[in-house]
């Protein structure tokens, strides 16, 4: 099975431009980048993919042991980079994938030259003076809520997405993306995401790093953005004029502009 097919890899943009790999987080697939992708594709070569278990990836390749730790997801990132024989690529990771990309960068330093962390959080749970924004109990509640909510994913969301009248071309794509998410796979990804603690890995990030945060983000509040900024030497922190956890959707222009200016400033 080629990695191309396994991870539903898509390559667009300017073939001669620097390569930017857009990595989606928990809850969605590569469609999360649809609003920033066109802007980035003007100047850069853009690589998109789905983690195994998400979107249109090959679900038969999913193994609970592998995808129960962020390292498993990082291996997906590295294997995509290897498949395309990337050198000095820019990894853009959203949410939990900001940390996944940091791990990937550590594992494959030749292939990964810089990082953009979009709404990162190295640890979601408050602990010993660290404020992640959630208590262990909150995370348990979320897992419980996700587990009891998966009926909603398949039964409640699918008809709505399929019945989307004004953008039918979107419908099929999103239906596949969300309805193909096996509840078991989603549960494992949720647990792995929200129970992870990658704070120690931040100090190992040595490549140029841009941190993008939103003004109001329930999942990755500004204290966490500041923590990440402080823990990665030489990193750059940009606060986007956006609310929520997905600035690539709520403020796509500002997000694309920030990525573009960071990448343009990198030496060739």
């Amino acid at each position: 099975m080629s990695i191309h097919r396994r991870n539903n890899v898509r390559v667009t943009g300017r073939a001669t431009g620097r390569t930017i790999v857009l990595v989606h987080g928990f809850g969605c697939d590569q469609n999360m980048w649809r609003l920033v992708e066109p802007a980035l594709a003007e100047d850069f070569r853009v690589v998109l993919f789905d983690y195994v278990g998400a979107g249109r990836s090959d679900l038969s390749a999913w193994r609970e042991e592998r995808y129960s730790s962020l390292d498993g997801y990082a291996r997906d990132v590295v294997e995509v980079c290897e498949e395309l024989d990337l050198r000095d690529a820019v990894l853009v990771g959203h949410s939990v994938s900001a940390m996944t990309c940091a791990l990937a960068g550590e594992a494959a330093p030749d292939r990964i030259g810089s990082l953009v962390m979009v709404c990162p959080s190295p640890c979601y749970i408050d602990e010993d003076g660290y404020r992640g924004g959630f208590s262990a109990q909150d995370i348990d509640e979320l897992l419980e809520s996700l587990e009891s909510n998966y009926l909603g994913w398949s039964a409640a969301m699918a008809p709505v997405i399929m019945g989307n009248p004004d953008r039918p071309e979107l419908g099929a794509e999103l239906t596949n993306s969300f309805c193909a998410t096996d509840p078991e796979i989603a549960r494992v990804f949720a647990r792995t995401t929200f129970l992870s603690d990658s704070r120690k890995d931040l100090a190992k990030v040595t490549v140029p790093t841009l941190i993008l945060e939103c003004e109001q983000d329930v999942i990755a509040p500004k204290e966490v953005g500041a923590y990440v900024h402080g823990a990665i030497p030489g990193s750059e922190l940009v606060t986007l004029p956006a609310t929520g956890h997905c600035p690539q959707l709520s403020a796509p222009e500002a997000t694309a502009a920030a990525i573009r200016s960071f990448v343009s400033a990198l030496g060739r």
């Binding site: 987080g25 909510n149 997905c246 959707l249």
Partner: peptide, 21 residues
Amino acid sequence: LYHETHFAPLLRMQGHLGGIA
């Protein structure tokens, strides 16, 4: 968390979302 990871992105992309628990 469910809202931020599923509801909000879908609503942004589609403009409409219904029947979410």
